[in-house]
Write a protein that binds this DNA or RNA. Sequence first.
DNA 1: AATGAATGAGAATTCATTCAT
DNA 2: TATGAATGAATTCTCATTCAT
Lengths: 199, 199, 199, 199
Amino acid sequence: MEAAEELFAEKGFNGTSVRDIAEKAQVNLAMISYYFGSKDKLLETLFEYRGELSKSKLVSIIEKPNLTSLEKVNLLIDNYIDKVFNQQCFYKIFTREQVLTQTGHIAELILQMKKNNQENISRLIQEGQKKGEFKKNIDTALMMHTIVGTANHLITTKHHYRELNNLQSLSEEALLKLIRKKLATHLKFIIKAILTHEV
Amino acid sequence: MEAAEELFAEKGFNGTSVRDIAEKAQVNLAMISYYFGSKDKLLETLFEYRGELSKSKLVSIIEKPNLTSLEKVNLLIDNYIDKVFNQQCFYKIFTREQVLTQTGHIAELILQMKKNNQENISRLIQEGQKKGEFKKNIDTALMMHTIVGTANHLITTKHHYRELNNLQSLSEEALLKLIRKKLATHLKFIIKAILTHEV
Amino acid sequence: MEAAEELFAEKGFNGTSVRDIAEKAQVNLAMISYYFGSKDKLLETLFEYRGELSKSKLVSIIEKPNLTSLEKVNLLIDNYIDKVFNQQCFYKIFTREQVLTQTGHIAELILQMKKNNQENISRLIQEGQKKGEFKKNIDTALMMHTIVGTANHLITTKHHYRELNNLQSLSEEALLKLIRKKLATHLKFIIKAILTHEV
Amino acid sequence: MEAAEELFAEKGFNGTSVRDIAEKAQVNLAMISYYFGSKDKLLETLFEYRGELSKSKLVSIIEKPNLTSLEKVNLLIDNYIDKVFNQQCFYKIFTREQVLTQTGHIAELILQMKKNNQENISRLIQEGQKKGEFKKNIDTALMMHTIVGTANHLITTKHHYRELNNLQSLSEEALLKLIRKKLATHLKFIIKAILTHEV
DNA sequence: AATGAATGAGAATTCATTCAT
DNA sequence: TATGAATGAATTCTCATTCAT
């Protein structure tokens, strides 16, 4: 599944053959159908696995005591950035396949995950509004699109970022560290503006 | 090429067969190899064609007289949103394939286009900073990632947006109109914050 | 299709690979899917083709003027034996696959063909009964089962017939000629008994 | 082996996978190769088992005292119909595979069985001829082909019989009972004609 | 210029069988 | 004795491309 994840990220689901995966994973070709049932099912399993991992964290942050709502939002941003950077491969796949797969099990999985996230975050925003920390009339959906869109776009085109900003000398690791820090600051600034600045 | 664009957007480059394209375009199968050389070349041609269209507009906006820098930036945002919404298919392809195609002619094309855009916008930002309209220390690259990332993410997942915000009753057209307006306001707000708010 | 017919007869539908057919027919492997769509469709096409051929003959015999009903029945027997012996391959396939394929297009085709045949022959029997040539209470269906069953069984197990009756010295051709003649006499005798002998 | 028999009858030998059999028999997949050696050996074992069962009955009937030869023949017919109806699955397999398997152990088994049967029945016919019950010049082989061919054809296409004779309302059981009775009468009539009627 | 026919390469999957345990 | 896991071979089918016309 790891091999598949990397290859799907690199060459796309349709661009990756089961042969490639078998070779990369050093397993017999037939094993993949044997274990996962089919290539499609393999992708499903991957989505389920990664989806499972990311569920509970969100709630635990939102329910943390002794934090302002803004601090919680910032934690959420950090958490999302962590996930995206630690699971770059999956997020590349996710970003790409959510566009293609508009029906079927995976589509439902994605939608459910998103619905869940949006509800939780909406609650947090409302909490902040009640406490007077956040302004009225916040478009939560668009705000989330900005967080997710910016982070995904940055991570999926980090090779362009490197070129365009003359960072060819940096190691991959150093580059990631740099982007990560900048992105966190950037998103927190934006979200704070959205949540608190009156126009 | 139109047929190809729609299909690539819908099913991905690798998920679309030359047969599908020929059928959709009501054209002989062999014609596609005959005219474009190959399926890859067809994608290249598509990128060149769409890239061509979008070049000059940027400069013309930046060089418009009698506008504040912020007004220009807002025009740029409107312009980008227009492009994304009018060429949804292409932007879906673009978003997806820029991740896959990291070498080759298309990759160079994309990089050149981005380099060009970033330079022009950097100039605009500097102009605004000189005029005192914008604050110092603006991360142009990240700002652009937010514009592009948010817009692309929204347009490529508009079916999710519809579901999550209970807009199933809206026609496709009405939905697009709604998102478009919200997105413009949202991005302009964010960018203004980035460009002018001191922390 | 000829190659397929021979191989299906020899090794069964499931026992024959598309590869075998391609090799025997000296055509490219992909051609078979290209022309027929799939292996299943190939079988369908074969059934349609052979079915087409055998339709009209039946009616033309039944409607022949100046013949007694018994003479017509005898002609039908000769005609059926001709078909079975001239299209041994197809009849082997038919005999085998009609058991397996109980649903789908082919099943419908077969049923329709049989229905058609039984109706026509029933009419002929009734004609003979009206004319007083045939006795009452004839089980047309079973009679047909005897004709078809005996002929098919003989042709599909002719290699056993050869062994069991010590005809190893005969050429294939001579064997067929012999069986054919015996079978015709045999069936005509039986059918005459069924149609005319009172018990 | 029971599971295999049913599946072979339903889907053909080649159309049945060892997996199917294991599942139906609620047995571990590897067990089948383990016990029977291979799928082919399983079929062989099935043929041996069913062949074994049917040997002795024939002789015991033929050697029954105090019966006319015709009565013995009628008993044989009843006996064969019994076997076919009680072992429908096996006879479907038999009918199909005797065409395919023209060499190998099974082929020899079949041939031996048939040889044995034909010899015994020939003796019975000769006995009848000596006693003056039967006429001269009887083609025993063809007669047997009619018995076997008619019975097999009827049982393997009983679903067609049902449709063509508008017996859809009958239960499977009732249908079988009906066919069985008709078939017995039918065959006995035919065989009597063959054995006793001079032309 | 345009195309119907053809093809080699490669796709995913299923198969009967084996083997370590 | 029995079995879960594994595998090499073979399956059907689709693909992008070519080529004679």
